[in-house]
Design a protein around this nucleic acid. Structure first.
Lengths: 135, 135
DNA sequence: TTATTACCCTACCAAATAAGTAGACTAAAA
DNA sequence: TTTTAGTCTACTTATTTGGTAGGGTAATAA
């Protein structure tokens, strides 16, 4: 399951995608329009900025805006940044890999199946961007 | 991500699948062989029994055993029982559906994409059984 | 140059969930 | 009737999630 934080992130990002190239958008505006707790949203946006997805301007006329074109921001990237691993097991994760203890990956049916699940999921989320989320 | 509990459940179930039709297996044996905390495993097995996947016998010579053939126990079923929803959002879950608040499912790109992800995942886990987990 | 605006940053808190434990109870055999 | 082994209720503890508080800092414009 995606955390609420992730859902908030996607709402905020699609909002900013709609307003791409229209200048900075206030946190408070996003908060109001998308019904996301203001201070929580601040944290999320700041994180997305540090990761290079958003940029911001301070002072009057300031706010947040997408750093890249919406079609360049992959859904998979956002999930990994805010939510964490996409795979269902650490031992099959590409970006958050951890070795199984007490279990031989070479002889584990669950492992093999979870690789398939991971790839099926990646096949979708790696090939979709913020642009695709706009209806 | 699958919880540790789910991973324990799968380890225990594949162990029992290997010993299918060989009579009851002690909780303590599974605990030892699969390195699962004994009391925690008790809870898990009991849950799986209540859900109709396992059966048990008390007293000497007792233990747990699969109620059905390993090829009849779907991976999807086990995940739902022990881990919960397979979908990434409540609003696209088949068995744990919850309506999105503040969001129109008819006009939500994330929603649509998550249905695809769900179906891609289900296509795998609904068509695999404990038997497939044995290497 | 100073007031205002708006993001930046650190730290904290409460609720929920995950992970694991304790101990008494009950049923089946030997 | 003793031993064995699962059943059941109820904890405890650790981690994660979802948020809040409040001062700091940078940019803008009067």
């Amino acid at each position: 399951m995606l955390s609420k934080k992730s859902q908030y992130a996607f709402k905020a990002l699609t909002y900013l995608a709609e307003k791409y190239k229209e200048g900075p958008v206030l946190i408070s505006e996003i908060s109001k329009k998308k019904k996301i707790p203001l201070k929580f949203l601040e944290n999320i946006l700041l994180e997305l900025k540090k990761e290079g997805i958003l940029d911001s301007r301070k002072g009057k006329g300031g706010g947040y805006f997408l750093k890249k074109d919406p079609s360049k921001v992959k859904v998979a990237t956002v999930i990994r940044l805010i939510n964490g691993p996409i795979a269902m097991l650490p031992c099959v994760s590409l970006y958050f890999y951890e070795r199984c203890k007490d279990c031989d990956e070479k002889h584990c049916g669950l492992h093999d199946m979870m690789i398939e699940v991971r790839d099926a999921t990646l096949n979708i989320v790696e090939n979709r961007t913020l642009k695709d989320l706009l209806v």
